[in-house]
Amino acid sequence: MSPRRSYDQYCSAARALDTVGDRWTLLIVRELLAGPRRYTDLHADLPGVSTDVLASRLKDMERDGLAARRRLPPPGAAYVYELTSRGRRLLPVLQALGEWGQAELGERRPTDAVRAHWFALPLLRALEGEGIVEVRLEVGDFHVYVGAEDGPVYGEGPAPREPDARLVLDAGTWEAVSRGETGLPQAVREGRAEVTGEGTLAKALRQQAL
């Protein structure tokens, strides 16, 4: 476990950066917002991180009370990492950081990795209420838990139960929403995003698009 480096400043922002300011730490939090993840799953969804750095960051996050490691019961019997309540409180930090960084996205570069669930946090910023929204993109499917106060914020693949709304977006549309160039209601109104379902979230999206 690497020794903690510190800015040695009596400032809450500096203290926070002492804990989460290392490269990859906040992106690991982003992945763990989906719930418990195995080390191999984390490594697969963090392209560019070395195994040594990932292992080191996870140990640091355990030490700092951001994440915990536990063994799944049989027949899984694998070790998973999950956020603690303190780690989950970084969600609004990531949301604010993502909103601030919208202007930095620009057009997707040929070297840019992409995962469908990376759109989960930008999408949550555009949704209000409570319920599950299932999302289908060209790069894959995922679902988000709108208004969830604990537990996973999103998950890969189809929703575990009948969702309150289903969304289908093409690549250009979800990239534009991620960049803040268009709002979700506008995309629905223009026919660039398809909403189906009879839940309150689906009805709200259709109403907002009028």
Rank of each mutant, 00 (worst) to 15 (best):
G172D: 03
R23G: 06
A165L: 13
A44Q: 11
E134A: 06
R38W: 03
R4A: 10
G21Q: 03
V188F: 03
D8S: 15
W24T: 02
H43T: 06
L97Y: 08
R206T: 01
S85C: 08
T111Y: 09
D60E: 14
L205G: 07
L72V: 12
A209T: 04
H143G: 02
R189W: 11
A14M: 02
V20P: 02
P122N: 00
A120W: 04
R179S: 02
A193S: 01
L72F: 05
L184I: 12
A16S: 13
E107A: 10
V139N: 05
P158A: 05
V93M: 01
L127F: 11
V144K: 00
L97K: 11
A13K: 10
Y39S: 00
Y145N: 11
S178C: 08
R179T: 07
L32R: 04
V93H: 03
V195A: 07
A202N: 12
G87F: 06
R125I: 07
A209D: 04
S12K: 04
R57A: 06
P36K: 09
R38E: 13
A204Q: 13
T19K: 06
Y81L: 13
E62M: 12
V80L: 09
D170L: 04
V177Y: 06
A148L: 12
T111P: 04
L127C: 08
G65W: 03
D60I: 09
V49K: 02
E128S: 09
P160G: 01
E162K: 10
P75C: 03
G183F: 00
A34T: 08
I132Y: 06
